[in-house]
Nucleic acid binder design. Structure first.
Ligand SMILES: [Mn+2]
Ligand SMILES: [Mn+2]
Ligand SMILES: [Mn+2]
Ligand SMILES: [Mn+2]
Lengths: 224, 224
DNA sequence: AAAATAATTTAGGATAAGCTAAATATTATT
DNA sequence: AATAATATTTAGCTTATCCTAAATTATTTT
């Protein structure tokens, strides 16, 4: 019979979706790390997700999982909740850019379809959240969005920041203090090959900035 | 050590607070009925609530429970969340009068103090929710409010509706269809002693209405 | 190809919150 | 005061989710 979608199940599906962007098959330990639980707990859960009807993941022992169409549907539903909530918290309630994630992570499991619909309307059906992440539409289709990573840029290139990975609120605060927000224009001044540092100029700021690969790998841009 | 406030604990404390308005000591079966769980489950929970440090209720076997000051503080905190949320859902998001309760019942456990604070500000620190129930202020003090029950009124008296018990959304829809909302003026046309029916006129409506005691006992008014 | 290392799974437990059925206590009726 | 009806508690189970420790499987290195 059809599975009850508990909060934990929803969080697992959401994280599996996110991780599968990098590689379609997702390993037990990737999930464990992302959710900050032990690998043994992940094995227990993914075996359950694979055993319900209809299955939410396909599971290969000692190899990993991939979302089924049904699992992906549920994941996108929760991701839509999460990103609409982040946008609402920021735009309508005035939460800081870096404070919305934790709040949305709890609310996403609890709001009704009516709540989802009403905040979407209040916000005018936004296509991106405050971090620039795309929001699936009512039919759970993802809008097209930038996939060029800032770490790929080299000297002389210019770009506009589209999105910033949002799971670390210290990083978000660090970036916003330096003006590195979605929509902002940047140009690359220099690149040092051994440490992969990028020297860049943020439009409207006097000083230049140096960013290491741990940061530039989290920022996605649209080339000019 | 200090108890973790789970959703279930919060729901128990909230319901005990509500029930203790009628009688300070609240019985196991009253709680069981209100929460729609079995009495045996209630016994289990209230024993836990009495055993934590500091205790959240005082418990007398085979008699009932009463909230401790700490238990009351937690209850008021959740009631503030609940009623602010109801007001926000109605006023800001345009939810129907009768749809807000169920949504608030889930969200109340999940919102942060920042969320609470921001919706209070957006709403201008309201003192009453859409059903007319008083909202505890930041220091958890309840505003003064009407305690005259509509069922106590007799022929010739006039009053303004202050609040309507909000746990039954069919009743709320029934009432709003007849114009019986907080703020509306009414006058009593007749009273039949055997069935306790009240015949009344709602200001601005052509026809008069007959209400039985199951309804009039749920409506509170301010006498004119 | 064997050994070492890493990743994954199994087994057994913990905690939270509910349930049913049986036992016990309280209150009401005769 | 005894009996009956009601209310409450206890005991034992269930489900969901997480944990640790031990066992197993897969991968990498020598
Ligand atoms: Mn979450
Ligand atoms: Mn939805
Ligand atoms: Mn609740
Ligand atoms: Mn609060």
């Amino acid at each position: 019979m059809r599975a009850t979608l508990t909060h934990a199940i929803e969080d697992y599906l959401k994280i599996i979706y996110d991780l599968s962007v990098i590689d379609a098959w997702v390993s037990t330990s990737q999930i464990a790390k992302a959710l900050e639980v032990k690998p043994a707990s992940v094995t227990g859960m993914i075996q359950k997700l694979a055993a319900v009807t209809p299955p939410l993941v396909e599971y290969r022992k000692h190899y990993g999982v991939i979302l089924t169409p049904e699992g992906e549907r549920v994941a996108l539903e929760i991701i839509r909740h999460h990103r609409l909530l982040e946008t609402f918290l920021h735009e309508t309630l005035g939460f800081d850019w870096d404070a919305v994630h934790a709040e949305a992570d709890r609310l996403e499991h609890v709001i009704s379809e009516e709540f989802e619909e009403r905040i979407a309307q209040v916000l005018g059906d936004p296509t991106h959240d405050p971090h620039g992440d795309p929001i699936p539409d009512r039919d759970l289709q993802m809008p097209v969005h930038a996939t060029t990573c800032l770490s790929e840029l080299r000297v002389g290139q210019q770009a506009r920041i589209e999105r910033v990975r949002n799971d670390n609120c210290e990083l978000l605060r660090y970036l916003s203090e330096r003006g590195l927000l979605p929509g902002v224009e940047i140009s690359i001044l220099d690149y040092s090959p051994f440490d992969d540092n990028l020297y860049l100029q943020v439009q409207g700021r006097p000083e230049s900035i140096v960013l290491g690969p741990r940061i530039t790998g989290q920022i996605f841009v649209e080339l000019k």
